[in-house]
């Protein structure tokens, strides 16, 4: 019996606010990774060319896809780090429980994904400006997006990044349960790729996984797919975390 009953939702809110104010490094690393991705993208993400007797062209393709890919990697790392002891123990200095800690983490990661997803779009334009200012190229085509395409694109970026946070969170949790997962998970991943490559003429594992989300042309179905996967991965993470030791 306590004088004041604290609901789980109140705990989640408090922890979430604390994390937004304290995990500053998450956002500085976002800046650094984005700058790095812009630098990598400057070389172009692809090229094509052709010639005839009197005409020759080469075209560098500058795309924001690489920036998004870097952000996915960043999201995975951030989510993995957030499951480490240093971060988990920090929650115990508050009046909280495991559920509150998980939900505040998920909320924080979702907020970070929103920021990352929006800045992916802005950083693409920063990259575009750098290319236009410092590299002498004639543009053959620049996208003109409709407001709906823009909104869908940013939302999809956020969801892709959020999907990777859930993957990172599960990986982090598994490692917290058993340290040998540090070796087992990469070995399983690489092993699966090798077996996939050996079993068939063309490796299909990553392509099929990527196509499941990347080739989905219906926005609503895509949202369902990513949210269901993300929810499932976070759900498994929460279940797995029951086996993680509590702070002594």
């Amino acid at each position: 019996m306590y004088l004041t009953e604290v609901s789980t939702w109140d705990m989640v809110k408090k922890l979430y606010r604390y994390k937004l104010n304290s995990y500053f490094g998450v956002f500085t690393s976002l800046v650094i990774i984005q700058i790095l991705s812009i630098l990598f993208s400057l070389n172009g993400t692809g090229s094509s060319g052709g010639s005839s007797d009197t005409f020759e062209y080469n075209m560098n393709i500058y795309s924001g896809t690489l920036i998004l890919a870097f952000m996915m990697g960043w999201a995975f790392l951030v989510a993995t780090l957030i499951t480490t002891k240093a971060y988990r123990y920090d929650d115990s200095s508050f009046v909280s429980n495991r559920t509150a800690s998980h939900f505040s983490n998920i909320l924080f990661l979702f907020s970070a994904s929103i920021i990352a997803g929006i800045t992916v779009y802005f950083s693409y334009h920063l990259f575009l400006s750098v290319v236009s200012l410092f590299m002498k190229v004639r543009v053959v085509q620049a996208d003109t997006l409709t407001p709906i395409q823009l909104a869908q694109g940013i939302t999809a970026s956020v969801l892709y990044i959020f999907l990777f946070t859930s993957l990172g969170y599960l990986t982090g949790m598994l490692v917290q349960v058993q340290k040998f997962f540090v070796f087992v998970l990469p070995a399983l991943f690489i092993g699966a790729l090798i077996i996939d490559g050996n079993l068939s003429d063309e490796p299909r594992l990553l392509i099929s996984l990527g196509s499941f989300y990347g080739l989905e042309t219906s926005f609503i179905v895509f949202v369902f797919k990513t949210l269901l996967t993300t929810g499932a991965l976070y759900g498994v993470s929460i279940l797995v975390s029951r086996r993680v030791e509590v702070r002594p």
Partner: peptide
Amino acid sequence: KTKLHLAAYSEGFVFHQFN
């Protein structure tokens, strides 16, 4: 002979996935 050095810009696949 004409030689053209061109650039094509795109926000990325995610902005065209639902076209």
